[in-house]
Design a protein around this nucleic acid. Structure first.
Lengths: 157, 157
DNA sequence: TGCGATTATGTCGTGCACGATGCAAATGTA
DNA sequence: TACATTTGCATCGTGCACGACATAATCGCA
């Protein structure tokens, strides 16, 4: 391969990932604006809709976010009346996060967002099978890249 | 499909995109730290390595970033001695961005990053053909989502 | 030619991400 | 039981993203 080809923007795999991620967040915006949510806040709700009353840490593990990102984010969500934070009595270090009625009710309103969005992302070039394959690749990469991070932490000991 | 399945985190396509994008930026970090670059700054260099002396707008069109993101970013890069900004004499509104010697020299140092990284992302589950298919899907989505944005702008007129 | 619309860049405010660091509670162990 | 270590949460500083808005230069057209 010609030596410069590696560095051409059009040959990058990371750049389209970065761009699509941002563009999709943008595509979510009109839906989420009606509820006063940001995309990361919506992700926190997804986690809590599946199982209410989780600690900051548990939510972070599922979203692959650290507490220095999550803590302020969850505090903003509390300020907006979406959830409640209560320090656990069994383990005073942990903070349990519970949905409020408002946070719970938004589940109904959010139900059709993913399907709507997926509809926009399908065309003659991109079929459902392509999306499933893409998801499989991404999930595998999450596995690889997230484990690598943990390996680095452990190797520093 | 059961009504709640849509909202399960594991069934989302957008969440893995968002996570992988962040994890890959993180994977770039050790390489870029040696040059004192961030990932978006590295993207600007990629654009300028292909063709030096471009306006802020031209760079933004290629990276799908607006000037309110790019201007401060490019200013920081100038402060770090990677490039120069000069207001054009033909059109006083535009700012031409040129690489410095330092910014140009980093090209050599960056050459093997993408190949290195791609190596980590391949395994028995993810082959090169999967990555090519993934890129094709992402490029198609960039087309769709970016055009949609422009359509919204035009329809507001 | 005059003047309203458009264009290119930039500032400001808000909300992530995330590395570095702090602190208190819980845990492990000599 | 002391005390070092780990764990969970949080704050702080920096750098994106991006909507809203400002400003000056250019363009379009009556």
């Amino acid at each position: 391969m010609e030596e410069n080809e590696n560095l051409k923007l059009e040959n990058q795999i990371c750049f389209p990932l970065y761009s699509v991620s941002r563009l999709i967040t943008r595509a979510y915006k009109p839906y989420l604006d009606t509820m006063g949510l940001t995309y990361p806040q919506y992700l926190v709700l997804l986690v809590l809709w599946e199982k209410d009353e989780q600690t900051v840490n548990q939510i972070g593990k599922k979203l692959l976010l650290n507490t220095n990102t999550l803590s302020p984010l969850i505090q903003r969500m509390q300020k907006n009346g979406l959830l409640l934070r209560t320090r656990s009595s069994e383990d005073e270090r942990t903070v349990k996060v519970n949905l409020t009625r408002k946070g719970l009710d938004y589940k109904e309103q959010a139900r059709n967002i993913p399907k709507d969005l997926l509809g926009k992302l399908l065309n003659e070039d991109v079929q459902v099978t392509d999306v499933m394959l893409l998801k499989k690749t991404l999930d595998s990469w999450i596995e690889i890249l997230n484990n690598e991070k943990e390996m680095n932490i452990n190797s520093e000991k």
